[in-house]
Design a protein around this nucleic acid. Structure first.
Lengths: 247, 247
DNA sequence: AACAGCGCTTGATGCACGTCAATCCCGGGT
DNA sequence: ACCCGGGATTGACGTGCATCAAGCGCTGTT
């Protein structure tokens, strides 16, 4: 649909997924995409709806969430600028299995299945990049399962502060082979991280209640491991935090 | 390495992933693969080892597991005959993030990365089938996360009996669009399922202790929802079980 | 037949975490 | 300045599940 106010081809050229693509290829992808604006609280899609495209968060924050039969909600993933999602859904041909909601005002780019499939047939390297991207996604989910099942609440909070802090899932991974684990651990220098969304949302992402999350932050603060000021958290010694409560 | 006792090309032709492939293509894949025999308890690979191939369980049962720093273990996935695994690892170029152990004597086929990448460049349809396969994997992981985080232990057991029962992850999915959910739910007829591995292993897969898993089975039996005889479980009314404890 | 060993069960007890409810804090609209 | 509402904190209490420790019943071994 090529939109007027936003140069899609130029934007996607900056994403790792589309790197090395020729202007002609980028143009075809842009043709098969559409861009939309959403306000905070808007539902981008619901579970059960068919999925014929995947999405890129251009600006804003988005949460993917599941809802249990009795109505309670669990955040599966938090997404920030540059993040892509639902690629996997598109390829498996199933309807959405999670819902998506804009946590802030959001600019969303959606790329149609036909354009992607067409490009795969033209360029095997593109297929490999897609495979690599989805594979990383799968890894981080495996990592999440490990955290949920064999770390307790306090450790999950510590891990979050050390790994997922700053921008959520910021897409341009700095180095392959080190997909996610421990952006800050091992560093001797102090860091300041800023929670990208409300504490209740992060608590849900970590499978904790807001109350318990609050208590864990407080415990870390009492122990002198962190300083909390609203959404800003100061970590004087990441290594010591990583070793808590042993160190 | 084409082995004498086993016709690799013929075997993989029966897997959905390689369907519609020409004999020449199958031959090239078979060239790039190797087959091994493992005894019960053998470690197939450990976390941290580099991954240059993906695997197919020809016969036997395998578990993928994570180990926490303090030594306790959690089963991530159970695999039976026909299941493929570690495709994603191979593509993301990272070392193994889980370990694998044979739960029974096992015949394992491992297909090298080079052969797969070569075939992707030749046949875009193959790339699409790979993408679809990995995507289904990702979905079932999302499903797992949902179970762990918003169902309690009893419900996870019920879900397992209704969905994952019988062969674990039996690969030839009968119909797309219905990847996993509820193989038996909705059926009026009684079913008999047989646990593919020890109860302790299944308990770990469900993130429960063997003790608690045992108690949950006992509770379901007391309620008349199931009959347990060693590893055989009889479910007179799957629908009623699905609604437990409301029905 | 006796024994060993493993998979599984059963009971008693404890803790991590959730629930419920009250308060507090802070930014925004009129 | 006022009130308002949503996010966050705090405390008292309850519970789902783990832990620890015996026991039990197989199957295989000598």
């Amino acid at each position: 649909m090529g939109t007027s106010s936003f140069d899609v081809a130029r934007y996607i050229a900056s994403l790792p997924l589309f790197e090395e693509m020729s202007p002609a290829e980028l143009g075809r992808i842009a043709q098969g995409s559409r861009i939309r604006r959403h306000g905070r609280g808007d539902i981008l899609f619901r579970v059960g709806e068919p999925c014929e495209e995947f999405h890129v968060t251009v600006t804003g924050r988005i949460k993917l969430f599941a809802t249990s039969p009795d109505g309670q909600e669990k955040v599966i993933e938090l997404l920030g600028p540059g993040c892509t999602f639902a690629e996997a859904l598109m390829f498996s041909g199933q309807p959405y299995i999670v819902g998506a909601e804009a946590l802030t005002d959001t600019l969303l780019l959606s790329i149609g299945k036909a354009a992607v499939v067409g490009e795969i047939e033209r360029d095997p390297k593109f297929a490999l990049r897609l495979l690599a991207g989805i594979s990383r996604r799968l890894h981080s989910l495996v990592y999440d399962v490990q955290c949920y099942t064999l770390h307790n609440g306090l450790r999950r909070v510590v891990d979050y502060l050390l790994r997922d802090s700053g921008e959520p899932d910021i897409q341009p991974l700095r180095g392959r082979g080190c997909s996610r684990p421990c952006a800050h651990a091992g560093k001797a220098e102090a860091v300041r991280v800023s929670l990208p969304v409300s504490k209740a949302t992060i608590a849900s992402r970590l499978s904790l209640t807001p109350e318990y999350f609050s208590r864990m932050l407080h415990e870390l603060e009492d122990a002198g491991m962190i300083c909390v000021d609203k959404r800003d958290i100061f970590i004087p010694d990441p290594q010591r935090l990583a070793d808590y409560p042993e160190g």
